[in-house]
Simulated scan of single mutants.
Amino acid sequence: MFRQELMGCFTRRPDALFELTDAVLATGPVLSLPHLSLDPLHRRGHGSVYAALAKGEINTGALRDMPARRLDQRPAVFALDVSCWARGDAECSPSRGFSYHPTRHSAGKPIIAGWAFSWLAGLELTTNSWTAPLEVVRLLPGASINAAAAAQILRLLSRLPDTSGRFPLFVFDGGYDPIRLALALVATPVDQRALGS
């Protein structure tokens, strides 16, 4: 069922995109794009990898809605956090900024140069570490993490199935400002809880 829904999100060159997705998920680190065509799940030639990426089309709205539709059997608990993809030696990387990092340091400060991403994930209330990533947004340098989080929450609420009067619970790391979030979501039926880092 999930695979059929995923295939339906590919509107142009669906077979090539689907096999490329399988290869990306099943293969470990690869040196270049043609290496993905060597995976047994990718049954096409290496040229189809480039064709899928150059000419394939994805219905991003349907792809974004698909995971949210599958959350109706789970408690509505979500987490937001910002993580950084380190790009310390890539001075020419577009939109590279400086972000907090708990374990890496630059010039004695807990910051790194790289790309910041705001993650929104569904949580399970069991004793495992599984999450359901629902949306990731790249943050430009100087962007407000609170504004990005509020926008992600509003987009998710428009995609969630009817929660039958239950308010979704959103938890945040210590870097978020609970006052700004509360003001941005004042008319939204959500439960917000700020967690310490």
Rank of each mutant, 00 (worst) to 15 (best):
A182P: 00
F117A: 11
P133W: 04
A182L: 00
G108V: 05
R193F: 09
A76F: 05
C9T: 08
A116K: 06
L20C: 08
F10Y: 10
L154R: 04
P29L: 11
F98V: 05
A16F: 06
L71N: 15
A121D: 12
G114Y: 07
P161S: 03
S164W: 02
R166H: 07
C84E: 03
F170A: 11
T27H: 12
S164G: 05
K55C: 13
F172D: 01
A52M: 09
N146E: 07
L140N: 10
V24N: 05
R69T: 04
L185W: 07
T126L: 11
W85K: 04
S106A: 14
A149D: 03
E135T: 02
N59S: 06
R3K: 11
D177H: 03
V190S: 08
P102E: 12
F18Q: 01
S83V: 03
L38G: 14
G114D: 11
F10T: 13
P189Q: 02
A121S: 12
L183P: 14
F167R: 08
P94M: 10
C84L: 12
D89N: 15
R138A: 13
D177V: 05
A143F: 02
L36T: 13
W119M: 08
S32L: 07
S99Q: 15
I58D: 13
L181A: 04
G175V: 00
P189K: 04
F117Q: 12
E19G: 04
L156A: 00
S37L: 05
I179D: 00
D81Y: 08
H42G: 11
A182M: 01
I111A: 07
L36W: 10
P14C: 04
